[in-house]
Design a protein around this nucleic acid. Structure first.
Length: 768
DNA sequence: GCAAGGTC
């Protein structure tokens, strides 16, 4: 008989086996899941690692059909817990049959407690052996040995809190997602799904709030007075203390007072040293943020790369909230590993006695993210064929060393100058001690020097400007900012926050554009209408409320069943708010799908409807073609079209008579919607100035390009009957250069695969 | 087909 230990993951299981078995352990497999056997104090032990949760909640089979089950009905249905990873369940059941005791040794947090609890449930169905709990904050020898010497009981409240979260998250997600999706689908043919969740929706909501501010931003004028000074031949600038002056008169008056003066006096000077501490030890969110800022990778991409680097043994476990090293962390071992690597020059610069600049967060699960092995740039590029892997690895290494370095010291100087009664401020900054910045090439560390003038000195004024500018809207949100907001508001965890952003991208709500993230039209409409119907769903409170409820389960203050009922009440109340205003939400979403569907049919989209602002499109029937509104039948707006000729929408052409769109028919002529052919319009030449090539060779008119179905030629503006040929093939363009001999425009003709002809085409000129 | 949380 042995003792069975259950860890959260294989990596932890192997490490614990190595520590408790004093490096002697034997790897075996049960249902292809690895486990480890070892001996401790002459007793035999078996340890197996799970793969996180091996069970999950779902609604029973009979509620699976979206169309026959009213989502509202699901609010009161209790979901059931199923085994989701059968081989792990089989493996632990098998190992439990030959064990006399089980020790749960999952991560020491709420989910870890719950994962152990799942294993307990699965084992209890085949055995009634006793369970104990080992709690450790890191996988260091001391911690592990201590925790197994002082086993505790399972914290059932903690496990049940996670259970309550699972049930409430599932209920809310499923009910809202199904309701929105099937409601929209009943209005319009689409396969699109609209998903809602207590993490994904507020995540999208953060971006929505920012974009709403950008959208509603109205810029205002302001004036800024700036002076350029000179002292000891060093030029430097100063900004008027009033900063942005919103009244023009005030700025101009201030400017007029001083604009002709050429001396300023230094009325104050302050110098102080600024210490910039090294970055804190790296946790997941910080890593994802920095990788997004410095290299533009999305958090999801960055996490995937970090996981690969971890599995390769290059870096430590990448999912942690901890930014504090435990006291027995072995820095020496890592420094030693990097001594003869590409990083050797950095190693030489490390202080003799190593001490990290620790943060305050200790989730007691894993150490901060740090390098394990020195790997060359070449090896990483060979391994992964992707320079992003090197960027992430190199960042982790340099961040790790930077953290061990002394602070950087800047000397900040502030000068206050007066030109008559106007006060100007000048700021300078000089790097005195490079400290950790020497290891950290990711930040710009340019100096801004000021001359060595003292209080009372007089400096020259070289220039004073009074510039008018406009206030600018808030910037687009970066993925790094979004991660910060999620972290602050407790949306998601270190392991899931990148996933929530990704879900929003997959659903088509959010779009990554370089380093920024923006909301799609559909995402905006969804957030905007939800915000009008049931605003809480879009805000982080939706998650915080559930969190508060389940914390009461964890602390034992509230009964599990009571909390589930309270949670159900909250979901019901949000759901009723949405249903009460369903028209706003469902109609707008259906419209957005319709617009999206239509605009994908780009060739036939003509423009916006003059009556209802929806989309006008070309409609072809057996009897011919016309332009109709996509709002049909509620909008019956139509326009006729010429019967023959291919039609292309002339996107840039603007009709001076106000037609909603201008179409190009064949190569022949333009057609203004609601008006007719442009050649019948007296404004045609204004809208489409002719391509004039040069003077007519027959009269005092000029020759311009005429396109017909059978070809192109030059015709006379006086209609004198003179014509001139044009090259038959190739793309013809009239340049702005003139022939020096005959003063015709130089033309350019480009046929595919040959060099373009550029020259004069006047046949009389060529003969000369 | 739906959530969020683990991890491979």
């Amino acid at each position: 008989m042995s003792t069975l230990i259950i860890a959260e993951k294989n990596k932890a299981a192997e490490k614990i086996a190595s520590i408790l078995g004093n490096h002697k352990y034997c790897k075996k497999y049960a249902y292809s899941v690895p486990y480890y056997e070892f001996e401790l104090k002459n007793e035999s032990y078996v340890i197996i690692g799970l793969a996180g949760h091996i069970m999950g909640y779902d609604f029973p089979e009979k509620y699976k059909d979206w169309n026959s089950i009213d989502p509202k009905f699901l609010i009161n249905i209790t979901p059931e817990k199923y085994i989701t990873k059968k081989k792990y369940a089989d493996a632990i059941q098998k190992l439990a049959t030959s064990a006399h005791k089980v020790i749960l040794a999952c991560d020491f947090d709420r989910e870890g407690e719950n994962i152990g609890f799942e294993a307990k449930k699965i084992i209890e169905s085949v055995s009634n052996i006793p369970f104990k709990r080992a709690k450790f904050s890191s996988l260091s020898s001391n911690e592990i040995l201590n925790s197994f010497n002082s086993l505790t009981e399972i914290n059932e409240n903690m496990a049940m809190a996670a259970e309550a979260r699972q049930i409430l998250d599932l209920k809310m997600g499923v009910i809202f997602t199904r309701y929105l999706t099937i409601s929209v689908q009943s209005k319009i043919r689409t396969r699109r799904m609209f998903s809602i969740g207590p993490c994904q929706t507020p995540t999208c909501g953060f971006v929505y709030e920012r974009e709403k501010r950008i959208k509603n931003f109205e810029s205002t004028d302001f004036w800024k007075l700036e002076a350029i000074f000179s002292f000891d031949k060093i030029k430097f600038n100063g900004i008027h203390r009033k900063g942005k002056i919103t009244e023009k008169e005030e700025a101009v008056q201030e400017f007029n007072e001083i604009k002709k003066l050429n001396k300023a006096k230094v009325i104050n000077k302050t110098t102080k040293e600024n210490t910039m501490n090294p970055p804190l030890p790296l946790n997941t969110t910080e890593l994802l943020k920095k990788i997004s800022i410095y290299f533009g990778l999305s958090p999801e991409e960055a996490l995937t790369i970090a996981e690969d680097l971890y599995l390769a043994g290059f870096i430590s476990y990448p999912r942690t909230e901890t930014n504090q090293y435990s006291t027995d962390f072995n820095f020496k071992e890592i420094v030693e590993a990097f001594k003869n690597s590409e990083y050797s020059s950095y190693i030489k610069k490390l202080p003799k006695s190593i001490s990290p600049n620790n943060g305050k967060n200790n989730a007691q699960d894993h150490p901060p993210i740090h390098p394990i092995k020195a790997v060359s740039n070449k090896k990483i590029l060979n391994n992964y064929k992707d320079s992003s892997y090197w960027n992430v690895y190199n960042y982790i290494v340099l961040h790790f060393f930077s953290n061990l370095m002394p602070p950087a010291i800047f000397e900040k100087t502030k000068l206050t100058l007066s030109i008559k009664n106007s006060i100007f401020d000048s700021k300078g900054s000089v790097l005195k001690e490079i400290g950790w910045l020497e290891m950290y090439p990711f930040e710009d560390k340019k100096d801004k020097t000021l001359p060595l003038c003292a209080k009372g000195d007089v400096v020259e004024v070289i220039d004073i400007s009074c510039e008018n500018s406009q206030t600018t809207p808030p910037r687009k949100m970066t993925e790094a900012e979004l991660l910060t907001l999620m972290e602050k508001n407790n949306i998601g965890t270190k392991a899931t926050s990148s996933g929530h952003i990704e879900t929003n991208k997959i659903r088509g709500y959010l779009e990554k554009k370089g380093r920024t993230i923006s909301i799609s039209d559909q995402g905006y409409i969804l957030m905007d209408s939800l915000n009008a119907a049931a605003p809480i769903i879009v805000k982080p409170e939706v998650r915080a409320n559930i969190e508060t409820l389940i914390q009461n389960v964890e602390s034992g203050k509230d009964d599990f069943n009571q909390v589930i009922l309270k949670g159900i009440d909250e979901i019901k109340s949000m759901f009723n708010q949405l249903v009460a205003k369903k028209e706003i939400v469902i109609d707008q979403l259906a419209d957005s799908i319709y617009d999206e569907y239509v605009s994908r049919d780009e060739k036939n989209v003509v423009g916006k409807c003059t009556k209802c602002n929806r989309i006008l499109r070309i409609i072809k029937t057996e009897n011919g073609r016309f332009v109709g509104c996509t709002g049909f039948p509620s909008c019956k707006n139509t326009f006729s079209l010429p019967k023959k000729g291919s039609i292309v929408v002339a996107k840039k052409a603007l009709c001076k008579k106000g037609a909603p769109a201008v179409l190009k028919v064949g190569r022949k002529f333009h057609w203004a919607l609601s008006i007719g052919p442009c050649f019948k319009c007296e404004l045609e030449k204004e809208c489409f100035p002719p391509d004039i090539v040069g003077a007519c060779l027959n009269c005092d008119g000029y020759l311009f390009v005429i396109n017909t179905e059978s070809g192109r030629f030059l015709g006379c503006s006086n209609k004198c009957g003179f014509t001139h040929s044009l090259p038959k093939k190739g793309r013809l363009s009239i340049t702005s250069d003139f022939c020096k001999i005959c003063n015709w425009k130089i033309v350019r003709v480009k046929e595919s695969k040959t060099d373009p002809f550029v020259g004069c085409i006047n046949r009389k000129c060529i003969k000369k």
